[in-house]
């Protein structure tokens, strides 16, 4: 027992088991119910789009990490796979494969690695990919398949915007409506969301304030709040995309503000904007505000208030 070599290092000497890699894995697990339901509703085409998106994202990630001479970690690849999955979830199952690959390239190469890679991107990569595709190929990207069918048809948001026809809430809840691959089933997305909250993988403040703002806004302007919660990409956006840790605020009050801002912009676009759906742009716009939120809404400082109740 002499001359043993002791390890020295900074405290704490205990670390939590949960890591960033596990957090990404949790989000992927949480998206699985929605994935299965979307394959059930939109068939093999949806499955292929998902596979193409995930694989191409992983390939671009590998290329970029090599090109930037970075050591690849498991977290990098989990994050890239998640980006691919989310990109596939917010585009239509009618997207041709080459367009999916273009989307992945924009997401991983431009939105993620040009900004510095994992942890440094300002905008949500999957949403940048989607926005790019939507702006470049507007007709192709708004060709929606009806569920369980090979014919095209409008989404519930198209119907209400262009023709004023509302969709019943029950298909909206279960996902039996037209739309992007992963966004239609509110049920599956909520189940995954509860899992994420249980695993503490997402900040509860963002979806809560997002939903809250949409509900309040709908009440003020006399539209059905439940319809707006369940229709389109709101569930997917609020639970899985706005909560992306890299592109959402770290500060607690910032989280509330961020969610509320997303909700507000979504509803403004849906009610008066040129597009039927506003989730994607609302989150991207709020992403740009995140550094400001972190800086100017850092939260109360401990000991900022003096509570003196000395008895005389």
């Amino acid at each position: 027992m002499s001359n043993e070599k002791l390890l020295v290092g900074p405290a704490p000497h205990f670390r939590a088991k949960e890591d960033s890699e596990g957090m990404m894995r949790d989000v992927i697990i949480a998206l699985l119910p929605a994935l299965f339901l979307s394959i059930y509703f939109f068939g093999i085409l949806a499955a292929i789009v998902v596979i193409v998106a995930v694989v191409s994202s992983l390939v671009f990630e590998y290329i970029m990490l090599r090109a930037r001479k970075k050591t690849a970690t498991k977290t990098d690849y989990y994050s890239a796979a998640l980006t691919g999955l989310l990109l596939a979830f917010c585009i239509t199952s009618a997207t041709p494969f080459w367009a999916v690959i273009v989307g992945s390239a924009v997401a991983i190469v431009i939105a993620k690695h040009f900004f510095g890679g994992l942890g440094f991107n300002i905008f949500n990569p999957a949403l940048v990919g989607r926005a790019f595709l939507l702006a470049s190929y507007p007709v192709m990207m708004t060709t929606w398949f009806k569920p369980m069918d090979a014919i095209t048809g409008p989404t519930p948001l198209n119907l209400i915007k262009e023709q004023g026809i509302s969709t019943a809430l029950s298909p909206l809840f279960f996902g039996n409506v037209g739309g992007s691959i992963g966004e239609t089933s509110a049920l599956a997305l909520i189940i995954g969301g509860l899992y994420l909250l249980y695993r503490k993988a997402i900040d509860f403040r963002i979806p809560v304030s997002y939903f809250g703002t949409v509900i309040i806004f709908s009440h003020i302007f006399g539209v059905d709040p439940l319809f707006h919660l369940l229709a389109g990409g709101l569930m997917l956006g609020a639970i899985y995309m706005a909560t992306d840790p890299v592109t959402s605020p770290v500060s607690r009050p910032g989280g509330w503000f961020f969610g509320a801002g997303c909700g507000l912009i979504t509803m403004v676009i849906r009610l008066w904007g040129g597009y039927p759906e506003g989730v994607c742009y609302s989150i991207l716009l709020m992403n740009a505000v995140v550094p400001l939120l972190d800086r100017y809404l850092p939260g109360t400082r401990f000991g900022a208030k003096r509570r003196l109740s000395l008895k005389k």
Binding site: F120, V246, V250, T300, F302
Partner: peptide
């Protein structure tokens, strides 16, 4: 060690509310 992914857990647990 990896890069920070800004998950905010440290902010969540900080007992003196720092970032």
């Amino acid at each position: 060690e990896e890069v920070c992914v800004r998950c905010g857990r440290c902010t969540e647990v900080c007992p003196v509310y720092l970032n």
